[in-house]
């Protein structure tokens, strides 16, 4: 039982991060139809920029804020410099552009920073809480609470503000969105900015637990993509459920089978979804399930 709980805690913690990555995929996919494989790099930037500005003597909260701003600027630049000029290109072309952008960002990070692993001090100490014989790190609680707060903030933004509703409207009917005077290009840009912010926050929260490096975005993008597919691409609730599910599957297979299989879980989920239920767990879903 203690063992089971231990695996569940670690599964939920990484799952929360995968959920945030999957939400980033979802938001951009809904606004533009693009699957942004540079999503993991936003997470990497959140962690790496925080680590290096903090190391340069900037207090942690301010370092995190700087990392958030950097990631948002990179997200907006990615849209402005790579996606917008290719407007009207096929989805495959756009996906290849985002893969290229992710390689470029990784290269840029390895040159600007370095190629080693880095960590941050836990935000609230490292004395684990014992629950049912299993240890729960305070940072895990912070990751879960932070991810929960981000999900609620995103829900509020999308359903309670006019800018958020403009994203939903663009996802629902692009033609009608343009006819009511929504600048749909700006909406797509906004979705890149918000996705970058969500990714960076995830990166900041997880770095004290999982470490970060210039290339940690690659696997995260893969796992977030698996989560988004499992939860039906385009469905925000599905992204959250998918993220937690992938995280738990990973933790249990690592714990009960072998940790060398951990990273294979995401591949298996992607293959399973493709072969068995191409629509994902929630069927065809746009933003209507927000």
């Amino acid at each position: 039982m203690a063992e089971f709980l231990q695996f569940a805690f670690s599964g939920l913690t990484v799952g929360a991060i995968y959920a945030l990555v999957a939400l980033g995929f979802t938001l951009i996919y809904n606004a533009s139809g693009v699957i942004n494989f540079a999503q993991g790099e936003f997470v990497m930037l959140g962690g790496m920029v925080t680590v290096f500005t903090h190391a340069a003597g900037v207090p942690l909260p301010l370092a995190a804020l700087i990392a958030l701003v950097v990631a948002i600027i990179v997200g907006l630049a990615l849209y402005r410099l790579a996606i917008e000029p290719a407007r009207g290109a096929s989805p495959v072309t756009l996906i290849i552009i985002t893969i290229g952008a992710s390689i470029l960002l990784r290269g840029g990070a390895s040159l600007t920073f370095d190629k080693s692993f880095h960590s941050l001090p836990p935000f609230a100490g490292s004395k684990p809480l014992m629950i049912g014989g299993a240890a729960l790190l305070p940072q895990s609680l912070i990751v879960l609470a932070g991810a929960g707060a981000i999900v609620i903030a995103l829900w509020y933004f999308l359903t309670r503000t006019l800018s958020g509703k403009a994203i939903l409207a663009t996802a629902a009917n692009r033609l009608a969105a343009r006819l009511v005077g929504i600048n749909t290009n700006a909406v797509v840009g906004l979705s890149f900015g918000v996705s970058a912010a969500i990714g960076a926050l995830g990166g900041i929260l997880m770095t004290p637990i999982t470490l970060t490096s210039y290339d940690s975005g690659t696997l995260l993008a893969l796992k977030g993509f698996a989560a988004a597919m499992l939860g039906s691409m385009g469905n925000p609730l599905g992204a959250v459920v998918g993220g937690l599910t992938v995280g738990l599957l990973e933790a249990f297979s690592a714990g009960y089978i072998s940790s060398s299989y951990k990273d294979a879980v995401a591949f298996l989920v992607i293959l399973g979804v493709l072969f068995l239920m191409p629509q994902g767990l929630f069927g065809r879903g746009g933003m209507e399930r927000v």
Binding site: L162, K165, A166, A172, N173, A176
Partner: peptide, 18 residues
């Protein structure tokens, strides 16, 4: 071309987007 998933109220409010 209504915004199908959105409420009637939201559809109308979006009409006043500008």
């Amino acid at each position: 071309q209504v915004f199908g998933p959105l409420s009637v109220d939201d559809n109308l409010r979006l009409g006043a987007f500008r």
